[in-house]
């Protein structure tokens, strides 16, 4: 009988490093909700599908027709206060705001090969014309769900559920060898 396939003994360490903890919310609601949230969050919301808006440390990312990810690179310690501020701004409007700061972790992949590396697990066309700067979407990286956001021609911000962070980064390190 053949031996069990062993893990490659020269596996690279997980890469790239996790970004610092951040504040994250999922916001569901219509255009009026988004307008109200903009006042508190300070960043407008893209009405176009699969687009993100960034202002300072804060961003809004389209996740679905009435679903956005609010991202602030500042850590989540004040998430409760931020949530209260958002809730006050949206009072009386039908919406759902949920703190998911700890649900996700993120990495940034940049450099000339960033797209090639991601295509080691992501099935989307990452040509700049097809996936321009500012585009964001949920998609797959091999067997993990990710949020992929192109922040520059050669830079991507990748979010994933926290327990998938080791897998995604181990796989990124492995596929990065092939670039």
């Amino acid at each position: 009988m053949p031996e069990q396939a062993a893990p490659l003994d020269d596996a690279a360490p997980p890469w790239p490093p996790l970004l610092a903890p951040a504040t994250r919310f999922i916001l569901h609601g219509n255009a009026a909700v988004r307008a109200a949230a903009t006042a508190a969050w300070g960043v407008p919301f893209a009405e176009e599908a699969c687009r993100a808006r960034l202002l300072g440390s804060r961003a809004t990312l389209w996740m679905g027709p009435d679903e956005y990810l609010l991202l602030d690179r500042a850590p989540a310690e004040a998430a409760g206060d931020t949530a209260s501020g958002l809730e006050r701004a949206m009072a009386g409007l039908d919406h759902a705001l949920v703190d998911v700061s700890h649900r996700q972790v993120a990495v940034e992949i940049n450099g000339a090969h960033a797209g090639h590396i991601l295509n080691g697990g992501c099935p989307l066309d990452l040509d700049l014309k097809e996936f321009p700067v500012g585009m964001c979407t949920r998609t797959l990286f091999a067997k993990a769900d990710i949020v992929l956001w192109r922040t520059a021609a050669d830079a991507f911000h990748v979010e994933m559920w926290r327990s998938f962070g080791d897998y995604v980064r181990a796989l990124l390190a492995e596929v990065a060898r092939d670039c």
Partner: peptide, 14 residues
């Protein structure tokens, strides 16, 4: 492809 050994499946840890 890379779906072997430690990379065969995601391993979720708490």
């Amino acid at each position: 492809g890379t779906s072997r050994g430690a990379l065969f499946d995601p391993v979720r840890r708490t």
